[in-house]
Computed example of a mutant assay.
Amino acid sequence: MVFCNETLEDMNQDLDSSCTKEVFKRVPNLNKLGILNDSYDTISLDILVNLPQLETLKISSLRERVRVPVNFTFPTNIKKLTLGNCKIAWKHMTIVGSMPNLEVLKLLDGDKERPGWEPEWEPTEGEFCKLKFLLLRTMFLVQWRASNTNFKSLECLMLKQCSKLEEIPHSIGDIPTLQIIELDDASPSAVISAKQIQEDQENLGNDILQVHVLCEGQFNHQQSEELEAKLIANLESNDDKLQISACSQLTNLINGINALSKGLISRIFSRLLKFLDRDDFPQLQVAAAGAIGDILFCSSHTFNITVNILIEQGAVPIMVSLLSSAEDELRGMVGVVYLSQNVRCQSNM
Rank of each mutant, 00 (worst) to 15 (best):
6 E>F: 11
7 T>F: 07
8 L>H: 09
9 E>A: 09
13 Q>W: 13
16 D>R: 06
18 S>V: 09
22 E>A: 11
22 E>W: 00
30 L>E: 05
32 K>D: 06
33 L>F: 04
34 G>V: 02
34 G>R: 09
36 L>V: 15
39 S>A: 08
40 Y>F: 12
42 T>Q: 07
42 T>F: 09
43 I>C: 12
44 S>E: 15
45 L>F: 11
46 D>G: 13
58 K>G: 03
58 K>I: 09
60 S>T: 08
61 S>M: 03
64 E>L: 15
66 V>A: 00
69 P>K: 03
70 V>N: 13
73 T>Q: 12
74 F>C: 01
81 L>I: 00
84 G>L: 03
89 A>C: 02
92 H>S: 04
97 G>E: 04
101 N>R: 08
104 V>L: 02
110 G>N: 12
111 D>V: 14
113 E>L: 11
113 E>Q: 14
113 E>T: 06
115 P>N: 09
119 P>S: 01
120 E>I: 08
125 E>R: 15
125 E>T: 14
126 G>E: 01
130 K>T: 04
136 L>H: 02
147 S>R: 06
149 T>W: 07
149 T>F: 08
154 L>M: 11
157 L>A: 03
158 M>F: 06
165 L>D: 05
165 L>K: 00
165 L>I: 14
168 I>Q: 00
170 H>R: 14
171 S>D: 12
178 L>Q: 01
180 I>Y: 09
181 I>F: 02
181 I>V: 11
187 S>H: 08
188 P>V: 06
190 A>R: 01
194 A>W: 11
195 K>H: 08
200 D>Q: 14
201 Q>V: 04
201 Q>R: 11
202 E>V: 08
207 D>V: 14
208 I>E: 10
210 Q>T: 06
211 V>A: 13
212 H>Y: 12
213 V>E: 03
214 L>R: 13
222 Q>R: 10
223 Q>S: 12
224 S>V: 06
225 E>H: 08
226 E>T: 07
228 E>F: 02
229 A>G: 11
235 L>R: 05
237 S>W: 10
239 D>W: 04
240 D>W: 12
242 L>R: 13
242 L>C: 14
243 Q>V: 08
248 S>T: 12
250 L>N: 02
252 N>H: 14
254 I>D: 02
256 G>C: 10
258 N>E: 15
259 A>D: 15
259 A>P: 06
261 S>K: 13
266 S>Q: 08
267 R>K: 13
268 I>A: 04
269 F>T: 05
274 K>M: 06
278 R>A: 15
279 D>V: 09
280 D>K: 14
280 D>I: 10
280 D>L: 05
281 F>S: 05
282 P>C: 03
289 A>T: 03
293 G>L: 09
296 L>K: 07
299 S>E: 07
302 T>C: 10
302 T>D: 10
306 T>E: 00
307 V>Q: 07
308 N>T: 10
310 L>E: 01
310 L>H: 10
318 I>K: 07
318 I>N: 12
319 M>S: 01
322 L>P: 04
324 S>Q: 13
325 S>I: 04
327 E>I: 08
328 D>R: 14
329 E>D: 11
331 R>Y: 06
336 V>A: 11
337 V>D: 01
338 Y>W: 10
339 L>I: 13
343 V>A: 12
345 C>H: 09
346 Q>C: 15
